[in-house]
């Protein structure tokens, strides 16, 4: 069972302000079908002072969803609407002496219901602007949306960097596999090599961060750099019983053999995309990473023996 604080249990077993509110003049209804929570928040607002005279809720959800709703109504009663809008989900969680990381979204839902109710009162349209990703690191309560953003904004490419920037993965290591999946997915999307099913995305960032021109590399330096990048990703592939080997470099095309478990697997495209991104950065030029199987076809005319 979850490790709920006494305050959470108290508000779950004896929820305050539960049930319909007859004289409500503001209602907010939000839900997340996936995590199985839905909430209707009802307010009675004094039109003269904009003050919340009364509040009540109805919630479909777990223990902490009900407790968060109860806490929210207690917090906002007596506030003006502008004051209430400043209530954050952390305030709700704090009021309850904390929520387990997996359950923080319950407090987020409370805050959204509040925004929706106030928009409803003011006759405005309310749009949900928050995007919640899958919870990746439980030790530090980091979700996939945050990791994706940090990876994109800071051009990160390794698990160690993600840990450095977000702390995710810095404690029990249970989330390392998932962090690497998010990382590969983000890098693949960035490199403009989405899986074949997804059509080219117009908003994809332009390839190669070519802003800072670098001195041209000699052929030898260039080859060494390529080998270095390949060597740096090898341990990650080995961990999944795979391997990689450079077969040929022809202009902008780098042909590699993906071996073992990586070969033909669903992650092949994502893996190549991630490594390609690293090569851009190391070489400062746009290159294309291709499976060596494509080399056979491109070579045929040259070696027709």
């Amino acid at each position: 069972m979850w490790d709920y604080t006494d305050k959470v249990k108290e508000h779950f077993f004896n929820p305050r302000n539960a049930g319909p509110l007859a004289e409500a003049n503001a209602t907010g209804e939000v839900g997340s079908i996936q995590c199985g929570d839905a909430l209707r928040l009802m307010l009675k607002v004094d039109p003269a002072s904009d003050r919340i005279l009364d509040a009540s809720f109805q919630t479909f959800g777990c223990g902490s969803a009900i407790a968060s709703s109860s806490a929210l109504t207690e917090i906002i009663k007596g506030m003006t609407l502008d004051e209430a809008l400043k209530v954050s989900n952390q305030d709700i969680a704090q009021f309850l002496d904390g929520l387990p990381p997996e359950k923080m979204h319950c407090s987020v839902m409370g805050r959204e219901a509040l925004q929706a109710a106030i928009a409803n009162y003011r006759g405005e349209a309310w749009e949900d602007d928050h995007q919640e990703g899958e919870l990746i690191c439980k030790c530090y309560a980091i979700d996939s949306a945050l990791i994706e953003q940090v990876v994109r904004d800071n051009a990160l490419s390794t698990l160690e960097q993600v840990t450095h920037y977000t702390k995710a993965g810095g404690a029990c290591a249970a989330c390392h596999e998932k962090i690497e999946e998010v990382l590969l997915r983000t890098l693949a999307a960035q490199a403009g090599t989405p899986p074949p099913s997804a059509a080219a995305r117009p908003e994809a960032p332009p390839p190669a961060p070519a802003a800072a021109p670098r001195p041209a590399l000699t052929n030898l330096q260039r080859m060494r750099r390529i080998e270095e990048v390949i060597d740096s990703v090898r341990p990650m592939l080995r961990r999944d019983h795979g391997d990689i080997e450079v077969v040929e470099i022809i202009g902008k095309n780098i042909y590699v053999n993906l071996q073992g478990a990586c070969m033909g697997c669903a992650m092949e495209a994502a893996t190549l995309g991630g490594i390609q991104q690293k090569l851009f950065e190391a070489l400062g030029e746009f290159v294309r990473l291709l499976p060596a199987s494509q080399l056979e076809t491109s070579r045929q005319p040259l070696h027709a023996d």
Binding site: A18, E112, D128
Partner: peptide
């Protein structure tokens, strides 16, 4: 059910179309 938005406590029956939350 008394505190569930999907349930109409007055009629003691499902609320059906009465509750249509904005899904996050």
């Amino acid at each position: 059910r008394r505190i569930s938005p999907y349930w109409n406590a007055e009629r003691n029956a499902p609320a059906n179309a009465e509750f249509t939350p904005a899904y996050a």
